[in-house]
Design a protein around this nucleic acid. Sequence first.
DNA 1: GTCATTTTGGACCACACAGTCCAATTTCAA
DNA 2: TTGAAATTGGACTGTGTGGTCCAAAATGAC
Lengths: 190, 190
Amino acid sequence: MRALTPKGAATRQRIVEGAALLIREHGPANVGLDDIRAATTTSKSQLFHYFPDGKSDMLLAVAAHEAERVLDDQQPYLSDLTSWAQWESWRDRVIARYAAQRRKCPLSALTAQLGLANPAVGDIITGMYSRWQGQIAAGVRTVRPDADAERVAAQMIGAIAGGATMLVATDDIRYLEIGLTEAIENLRRD
Amino acid sequence: MRALTPKGAATRQRIVEGAALLIREHGPANVGLDDIRAATTTSKSQLFHYFPDGKSDMLLAVAAHEAERVLDDQQPYLSDLTSWAQWESWRDRVIARYAAQRRKCPLSALTAQLGLANPAVGDIITGMYSRWQGQIAAGVRTVRPDADAERVAAQMIGAIAGGATMLVATDDIRYLEIGLTEAIENLRRD
DNA sequence: GTCATTTTGGACCACACAGTCCAATTTCAA
DNA sequence: TTGAAATTGGACTGTGTGGTCCAAAATGAC
């Protein structure tokens, strides 16, 4: 896999996106290589050509792809939390996103599937949360320079993660609404 | 399975507890019926005798068993949140429990494995959270009769769920500590 | 134009593992 | 004591599925 012609890169891309779509819809446990092959009009040899280590290798790429999406979906709000109105917009954005995907949280499903075994998965997840928390903390510093920005950001990340978990578990979006709203409110009146 | 002699009941129990232990340790995806058979000194026919619908049936029983444990582990604190000192003790208890199990959260692993497909799983999880939230809300009413007890309880459940999720994802207990501490603090100074 | 390299097709393999089956043994009520 | 029902042992089967292999076709550098 030293060189990679444009055609090859396109195929690889098609595989990742097709697999991501399938997994988002049906869950990683219910998607086999044959399903991915069929959905992306590829062959077995292509799958293993672009992902020499097999399925786990592919799921890793899918996980990285999904992690990107999580943060991208929150732009431009997340990177510009400079007024309370912006904070509100961001919150609404996050809630809307989760309300839309309902019980289908691709990242939690993937991490659960890949598990703690693979340290590379941990890096992806940790990195994503780290960037996420960093951007929130930056926002906190602009509206509340005196607050413990990292702590507040950690609280918000926790509230979001909890809200998402409860959404998946109980199909109830209110946990996310309450958690995020309270965290922002808390910051505001500090 | 109409009748169930004491011997049979004991065997069934042994299977559930043995399977739960194994799954807690290795994750549901990495535990096969043969592993359970070996660990519980039973035979294939026994497994299917007590769980006619096979593995999913068994995992359901394991999930119910684990859900019990979650609440049991918090007693007697959870059912007696009548003073701030009691709230602190409860919080410490919850944090200690999660710190001990570290990244191995049996419930989240099991729900991820069984998935949203099975409505029976949803009932177990929803029921557990419902009872949990109810007990917290009862505690809120004793220390803050004027507060919106259900909302506060929901916030705390969300903080715990988020803390647990982040603990699994990043192996960092601080999200749980911060979330729970802030939630209680918030209630206290309201 | 030609030759090496990349890309592709798809048949085939290996095996893990859920689930079946039947016979042997134990339990317990009458 | 006896016999029906529950319990147990373990060999066997079937299949879903990840992974291998090799040859054919496309690509691109020179």
